[in-house]
Simulated assay, not measured.
Amino acid sequence: MLLIHDGETTADASVPRTGGVPLVPDGFVWPLCRECDGAMQFLAHLPLPFGTVAVFFCQNDPGMCDDWDATGGANAAYLFAGEGLSPAAVPAEGETALGAVTALRPHPEDASAPGPVLGRLGGEPDWIQADETPACPSCTARMAFTAELEEGADFATAANFGSGGRGYVFTCEPCGEAAFLWQC
């Protein structure tokens, strides 16, 4: 399923989107980069049939923290099960937000896309480099490919994936784990 640019939306919309504020369970603590200790940037909100994925990566000093590595500590992805998610408290410091909030509309891959393609849900990853599918940190099984994210339709909506890069989201539904990495 393609993810098509569907215009701007509210910062806390429950639709698939990039930017804005993550919807999280009570007690959520905003992730900090293990390398620079800065608050990570919220990248994407992806509601799925089995939960909601929230994706973050470090943009405090772009290119200096290993935000392309699923286990390097400069990115984070969370799989939240169930209902009752609410907007997170956003840290006052750090590069925590994209320049705009963009709705992503699912669209069949076999049909002509009516707008810019900003990613896709499911299928197989279209790796730019070698396969880097992460292992689940809980059960060590190979995680399931969940979504691919493109940089963005314009500078305000773009994630910094190193100019022409692509982000990859993985989940382990039984363990409730998620992971994120990017390649360029």
Rank of each mutant, 00 (worst) to 15 (best):
D12P: 00
D12H: 12
D12E: 15
D12C: 08
D12W: 08
D12R: 05
A13F: 04
A13I: 03
A13T: 05
S14C: 08
S14A: 15
S14E: 13
S14I: 06
V15M: 03
V15I: 11
V15F: 05
V15Y: 03
V15P: 02
P16H: 06
P16L: 01
P16R: 00
P16G: 01
R17N: 07
R17V: 08
R17P: 07
R17K: 14
R17G: 07
R17T: 08
R17C: 07
R17H: 07
T18C: 09
T18Q: 09
G19E: 09
G20N: 04
G20Q: 04
V21K: 00
V21W: 02
P22N: 04
P22W: 01
L23W: 05
L23I: 04
L23F: 05
V24W: 01
V24E: 01
V24H: 01
V24G: 00
V24T: 12
V24M: 02
P25L: 10
P25K: 11
P25S: 11
P25N: 11
P25Y: 12
P25V: 11
P25F: 10
P25G: 11
D26I: 03
D26E: 15
D26C: 03
D26W: 04
G27R: 11
G27H: 12
G27Q: 12
G27W: 10
G27N: 12
G27D: 12
G27P: 15
F28W: 12
F28A: 08
F28M: 08
F28P: 07
V29T: 15
V29Y: 05
V29D: 14
W30L: 02
W30M: 02
W30V: 04
P31I: 05
P31M: 03
P31W: 03
P31H: 04
L32W: 04
L32D: 09
L32E: 11
L32R: 15
L32S: 12
C33G: 06
C33F: 07
C33R: 04
R34Y: 08
R34S: 13
R34Q: 15
E35Y: 09
E35W: 11
E35A: 12
E35K: 12
C36E: 08
C36D: 14
C36M: 06
D37S: 14
D37Q: 13
G38D: 14
G38F: 09
A39L: 04
A39I: 05
A39N: 14
A39S: 15
A39T: 06
A39G: 08
A39P: 05
M40L: 11
M40R: 07
M40F: 09
M40G: 08
Q41D: 02
Q41T: 14
Q41A: 09
F42H: 11
F42W: 01
F42G: 00
F42K: 00
L43R: 12
L43P: 01
L43N: 14
L43T: 13
L43C: 13
L43D: 14
A44G: 05
A44P: 02
A44Y: 03
A44K: 00
